[in-house]
Design a protein around this nucleic acid. Structure first.
Lengths: 101, 101
DNA sequence: ATCAAATATTTATATATTTGCATTTGTAAT
DNA sequence: ATTACAAATGCAAATATATAAATATTTGAT
């Protein structure tokens, strides 16, 4: 039998934070656009999703802060991309689970 | 005729809700206890995790409502178990991603 | 029908999240 | 230095979530 004490609670929090970062329709949509190692700028994402620039930046900030995305500045643009490409599989897996209700 | 965009956003919401349900340290801990098709009662979980009965029931209700868990009543007890066992892999995957920061 | 055990719900409070607007910061070109 | 564009930040209102205490419901046993 496994006891809660044996589950690293710091690890649990980290996983929960990562999941919480992903668990938002707009942010899932962002991840789907970044699948396969694609790199997009804030403006590109804000236009693709049709949401405010500041809102887009905020969402990207959350994803970056929780270790889901990385970013690299190139001139005036900041490109965002997946830190671990496996994470897009998480989303795919979830969508498969939401299929046969 | 249903518009594709509506379907997409409905699907996105469903996936987000499922993830949001999972994205909580206590609820991740619950999932880890249910890995491998195990079935546990509310009381067992509330004792394993050391949280209030009503809080436990509330968390289980969220997980069930969002399609993560199923439940079956047997006498006075209600057993909860994973609806899709793959979901515990999501958690494992995430924890692997939180490893090599 | 009454009682006790197991769950679920209600309620209230505290806390966190989402969003858009306005503003600010960073970068490159003129 | 000024302008222009890209991105990030501060703020505030609306909304959502977490928790626990108290209460209610369901079920089985007597």
């Amino acid at each position: 039998m496994i006891k809660i004490q044996e589950l690293d609670s710091e690890r649990l929090d980290m996983a929960a934070n990562m999941l919480k970062a992903i668990a938002h329709p707009m942010r899932i949509a962002i991840l789907k656009h970044l699948e396969g190692g694609k790199k997009l700028t804030v403006t590109q994402i804000h236009e693709l999703l049709g949401i405010e620039q500041s809102t887009t930046s905020h969402h990207l900030g959350i994803l970056k802060d929780k270790g889901v995305l990385c970013s690299r500045r190139e001139g005036k643009n900041t490109f965002y991309y997946l830190k671990h490409d496996v994470l897009s599989q998480v989303v795919d897996c979830l969508e498969r689970c939401t299929c046969g209700e």
